[in-house]
Simulated scan of single mutants.
Amino acid sequence: MTTSPKCGKYLTLQNFCTCTQTYAHFPDQIAPYPVQPQTLTAIADLCSHILDPIIDNFGEARFNLTYGFCSADLKRFLHQKDPLTHQKRGRIDPSRDQHMSYELNRCGRLYCDRGGAACDFKILDLSSDRLVVWILDRALPFDSLYFYGCDRPIHISYGPQHKRAIWAFTDKGTPTRQGIGYWVEKAAGIR
């Protein structure tokens, strides 16, 4: 029996690629792992620069990874509608969200030309707004951070741009900066 390679101090590639509910429902039908070697490097960079410091502070037991790498198979399943609810299994935007990292589509083009890697996670018993403040106070070098609400996971990416872009989302999933001006200014180094 082989063990999954580590991506950082705490997470393995298996953790990062098989953490979604969709994968849990269809493990025999989804090839969850990256094909491109550059994707492995990007995931390791995300772990070492962002996730390892967070887990160092809050502890492994409190860290809950909800969405890591998105393979082409997982993308296909997330876009399908559930036969019972008739809703898509997930909301993803492969061209922007960096979950597909450096993976290539059938035409040999990057799904996301922004590079890097992304994940969604929560810290148990900590509201996500407080987690965002902690990340900003430590000046972690993220590319994008999406805040979906105090009781929901956050999305964070690490990539070559290090934009430190922060977005909140309405209940309907529309991006907004309304109500997060302080965070946006802090991320930009204004505050």
Rank of each mutant, 00 (worst) to 15 (best):
M1L: 11
M1I: 12
T2C: 03
S4K: 04
S4M: 10
K6N: 13
K6D: 07
K9D: 14
L11I: 09
L11S: 09
T12K: 02
N15W: 05
N15S: 12
F16K: 00
C19Y: 04
C19I: 04
H25E: 14
D28W: 03
I30W: 02
P34A: 04
Q36C: 11
P37S: 13
T41I: 12
T41R: 08
A42F: 05
A44D: 09
D45P: 00
L46D: 01
C47M: 05
S48K: 12
H49K: 13
I50H: 01
I50M: 06
P53C: 06
I55A: 02
D56A: 07
D56E: 15
N57D: 13
F58H: 14
E60W: 08
E60N: 10
E60T: 13
L65P: 03
T66K: 11
G68M: 03
F69P: 00
C70G: 08
S71T: 09
A72V: 10
F77G: 02
H79S: 11
H79R: 12
H86G: 07
Q87R: 15
Q87T: 09
R91P: 01
I92Q: 10
D93K: 10
P94T: 10
D97R: 02
H99I: 06
H99T: 10
E103T: 06
L104H: 02
C107M: 11
C107G: 04
G108Y: 03
G108F: 05
D113S: 14
R114H: 15
R114C: 07
R114L: 15
G116A: 09
A118I: 02
A118Q: 04
C119K: 02
F121Q: 05
K122M: 13
I123G: 01
L124I: 11
D125N: 15
S127R: 14
D129I: 01
D129S: 12
R130M: 11
L131Y: 10
I135Y: 09
L136V: 10
D137E: 15
D137K: 14
D137G: 06
L140M: 09
L145E: 05
Y146V: 01
F147E: 05
F147P: 01
Y148S: 06
R152Q: 11
R152E: 13
I154G: 01
I154Y: 02
I156P: 00
P160G: 13
Q161C: 09
A165E: 12
I166R: 00
W167E: 12
D171N: 13
K172N: 12
G173L: 10
P175Q: 04
T176W: 08
G179N: 04
G179L: 08
W183C: 03
K186Q: 12
K186N: 01
A188Y: 05
A188R: 14
R191T: 11
